[in-house]
């Protein structure tokens, strides 16, 4: 028995949000300008993810060399300090299979998004570190990678933004779950390309009634769009700053 009401009849969730509100999202790009080609830091609620992109660079070994396009590698690092408590820690760190699986899915998502044919015979390496976890882990990783890629200047078709959405009582969709809600509700994670309705990734690991799927998809798509806007604002803001500083440099 959980000690709190996951979704109260008055329409408020454990942390005081309403059903369609996402958590506080803050992000930065170009956090590590020296050590890599593109970097980002993204925080949604208490989930904190950092990504660094290297590339396009010459492949480290022959096996990762493709004649017609770039070779994409994703390294996911979820250190044990990022977890809430000891029990979940054991669960995931041993189960590295799950992380491998996630890396493969991430490669698949971004393979289609990056215009890889522009960079033949090179490699693009994406390193992601999860600093803190409080739900919607996978969508935060996707959002953070998306930002870092933009920062690196690698050509992409569009943003990719992701969010998760749960279902309360087989009836009410609930957007952007935190850790407590993820324990209790079935939920799916979705990634959307740009402002379109093209779903590039959908992950569902629990049971969800089929008839509720449409509702959940609709709300997650609009949630993704909101996240895309928030990221876009940040990118534009920091781009302006960068242009300004470049201009100042060139004047000097």
């Amino acid at each position: 028995m959980s000690r709190q009401e996951i979704y109260s009849p008055e329409g408020l969730r454990v942390d005081g949000r309403r059903w369609n509100e996402i958590r506080r999202l803050s992000c930065k790009i170009n956090t590590h300008p020296i050590s890599c080609d593109g970097s980002s830091y993204l925080q949604i609620g208490n989930t904190k993810v950092m990504t660094m992109v290297h590339g396009p660079i010459e492949p480290k070994n022959k096996s990762s060399l493709l004649q017609d396009r770039a070779y994409l590698t994703v390294n996911l690092n979820i250190p044990s300090f990022s977890f809430f408590n000891a029990t979940t820690n054991k669960k995931l760190s041993k189960n590295s299979k799950k992380i491998l699986e996630l890396q493969v899915s991430l490669v698949n998502i971004f393979q289609d998004l990056i215009i890889l044919k522009n960079y033949p015979r090179t490699q693009i390496i994406i390193n992601t570190i999860v600093l803190n976890q409080d739900g919607s882990l996978i969508s935060s990783i996707i959002n953070s990678i998306s930002l870092a890629l933009i920062d690196s200047g690698i050509s992409m078709y569009d943003y990719i933004s992701s969010v998760n959405c749960g279902l309360f009582n087989s009836k009410f969709p609930i957007l952007d779950l935190n850790y407590l809600e993820e324990l209790d509700l079935p939920f799916l994670t979705i990634a959307i390309i740009g402002k379109s309705e093209n779903v590039s990734f959908l992950l569902l690991e629990n049971n969800l009634p089929l008839d509720a799927l449409e509702k959940i998809l609709a709300i997650s798509i609009s949630g993704s769009h909101r996240i895309k806007d928030l990221m876009d604002n940040q990118v534009k803001k920091s781009s302006k700053l960068r242009i300004k500083s470049i201009n100042e440099q060139s004047i000097n």
Partner: peptide, 28 residues
């Protein structure tokens, strides 16, 4: 961004003798 105040609820929880710090968001 959406007019809410956010605060953190921080507390220490012990389970099986370990103490762990739990941080939760709390929107006002």
């Amino acid at each position: 961004t959406n007019g809410l105040v956010v605060t953190q609820k921080v507390f220490v929880r012990s389970r099986n003798g370990d103490a762990s710090k739990v941080v939760r968001e709390h929107y006002l």
